[in-house]
Every structure is written in C-alpha cells, then in structure tokens.
Simulated scan of single mutants.
Amino acid sequence: MFITGVLLLLPELVGAESPLPVTTVELEAVLVHPVREAPAEAVALNDTRLGAEINGVIAAIDVAVGDRVERGQVLARVDCTPHRIEVARARAALDAGRATLEFSELQLDNARRLSERRSISQEELDKREADARTRKAELDRLQAALDAAGYTASKCTIAAPLNAVVIERIASVGDYAVPGTQILRLLDDENVEVSAKVQEQDLDGLEAAAEVRFTGRLRDHPVRLRTVLPLLERRLRTYEVRLRFTAEPAPPGAAGRLRWRVGGGRIPADLLVQRDGGLGVFVLADGHARFQPLPEARAGHPAATGLAPTTRLIVDGRFRVEDGQAVTVD
C-alpha cells in the first residue's frame, strides 16, 4: 500500500518544480545609444575685409589688432581735403545755377506779360519757356552733382559695419588708397555656426537626432541643425551641414567633432540569448519568464527593440531559463 501511494503522488511531486531564481534590471537602465560623429569647425558668418571706397591718402587708422569695435565706430580716415574742395565747387555751381534759373524765370514772366499785350511774338515766348525749362534741368543736374560730391566726401571716414574684433591691419597710414584697397580685417565673433562634413549614410540620423553637440578642445557646445547643403562631395560621399549654437558659441576657427545619438536605445549584445534559432531577451511577466524575440538582432551587435523602457529584463539566469518558466527575483 505504501509503495502504491508513493507512485500515485510522484507526478504531482515532479510537476511542483521550484521557481528558478533570477535577477532583473529595468530596460531603460541598460540601453546603449550608438553615437555618430563627423569632423567639424566653428566658422564666423562674417569675416570682413574693410576697404576704402574713394581715392586718397590714408590719414589715420584709429584701432589696433585685437580691439573690439562696435557698429558705426570710425576705424580709419582718408585725407578728405580734395573731396571737400569738390563739395565746395559743386555748391558754388549750384548757387550760380539757381541764380541763372531765377533770371530765366523772371524773363519768362516778362515775356508772358508782353505776349498778353501782343508786344512779343509767340516764337520769342516759346524760346523763353524753353530756356527756363533748360535752366531748371541744369539746376537739377547741379544738385545731383552736389549730392554725389557730398556722398564721396562722407566716405572719407571708414566705419565698422558690425560688432567685431580687429584681427588684421592690412594697410598703413600714408598709403595711397583707391576704391577696393583693403585697410582692416574684422571678424564677427558673435555670429558663429558649425560647419561639418557628414557621411551620406549618417544624414538621416543627424536630422532625426534629438541632441547634437559640437565637441571642441575645451568643452562641449549644444547645437541645432540649420541646413544641409544640397551638394554631395563625390570622392568622400559627404554633405556639408551647418548648425547653430544654442548656447555660448565656440570661438571662430575652433576645430572639433560633431556628435549625435542615432535613433532609440539598443539592448547590449551580451544580454541577448538564442532560442529556437533566433535572438531575443527574457522579460519578467507575472512571475514567469517570457522570451521576446528580436527579429533584427545580430550576434555580437546591440539590438533595436520596441519594448517599453520600464520592462524588466532577466539578467542572471537568462541562459538557463525557458519560455513560460516560473521564476523568483533575488
């Protein structure tokens, strides 16, 4: 009887297998984020070579290399004596032209009165009217000449077109300048952006990246993609991209690396297990181990996943556990 009772209880004893002890970790805590990078450089949007716009001897250069200048500040002066003479000459010519016009208009008024009394021919009246119109046109020309002379004289002073730093003094006091002669070089260190060369296959990832950083020699700078130039460099298969600094910019000319995370997090390769010819992970669900296949996973590579970040992954015990097996968390 005793042996018979033991035999009857044996199936129940075999089915009452103890849960397998395992350890788990939250998925979000172990995800790895692949990082892409590209060579990059901080470039100033304005690198200005300031030059003369008129002929003349450079009379003064009022700034030195390294000086910070503000927009509108006078930086250099060209000898303005000959240009002031031209202004005076144009003003005198205008005054003479105005007097001539006044005389011509007076003659026209007299001719009209005489015409009313038929003391002057129509031809003579027409001649006086034409003369007055000619004098008016001449006065307009002289006014334009005075405006031109004044504009030229205003170019005797050379002012900063923007806030910048003087980085080079090209000409010297006493040099004879002509239009286009370079005098100073200014660098705009307030408007700086990043230029980077990005591989063709990495472009989509960069455009979708939530965070991009420019890593220089001393620190990291957050940046945001502004544009992708629509020109593929054939030899290296790269595109030039431009990015704006979202905080303090790096100094112009600083070289570094552009870094960004690609897509969502990935499960580390060492947490993958193989079951039924495929790779996946074991997760904890209601006290049991459940195998979650990852169809795109490759051995030795981090795997993309659509699991929720709060999913509990089985870590210790993942190689011994089977799908559906009861487990207990240490």
Rank of each mutant, 00 (worst) to 15 (best):
G205Y: 03
E70T: 14
G180D: 02
I120V: 15
L187G: 08
R118I: 01
L8C: 09
V198C: 08
E53T: 04
V57H: 03
V78S: 02
F245T: 11
R98T: 14
D286N: 12
L106E: 15
E116M: 05
L231Y: 11
S115V: 07
E26F: 05
A209D: 06
L284I: 07
V78H: 04
R298I: 04
V43M: 08
V74W: 00
T4W: 12
S154M: 02
I54F: 04
I314H: 07
L232K: 04
A52W: 00
A52V: 03
L50T: 00
R257T: 12
S104K: 05
P19R: 01
Q274H: 11
G216R: 00
R169G: 01
T227I: 11
E124S: 15
I167S: 12
T24V: 14
R68W: 06
R118Y: 05
E168V: 08
T23A: 13
A92Y: 10
G263L: 07
D67A: 13
V178W: 05
I170H: 00
E138C: 02
H301P: 01
E53D: 08
G300R: 00
S172T: 10
G174L: 08
T310A: 15
A177N: 03
L162H: 10
R135I: 03
L101I: 04
V35W: 02
G253P: 08
V228C: 10
P19M: 05
L27C: 04
G174F: 10
R49M: 06
S172W: 03
E200V: 13
V65T: 14
D220R: 14
E207M: 15
L7S: 12
I170L: 06
A289W: 01
T134L: 14
F245L: 06
R226E: 15
C156T: 01
L186E: 00
R257S: 11
G263C: 10
A64I: 06
V43T: 13
D286Q: 13
A137Y: 11
D79N: 13
L231P: 01
P268T: 05
R133Y: 07
P251H: 10
L313Q: 10
E322P: 08
P230E: 07
D79G: 06
Q182R: 12
A254I: 01
A177L: 03
E86V: 11
L258A: 06
R133A: 05
T310I: 10
V6F: 12
P179Q: 03
A196M: 10
R318M: 12
A247M: 08
E12W: 14
L31Q: 01
T246K: 06
R226T: 13
I183F: 02
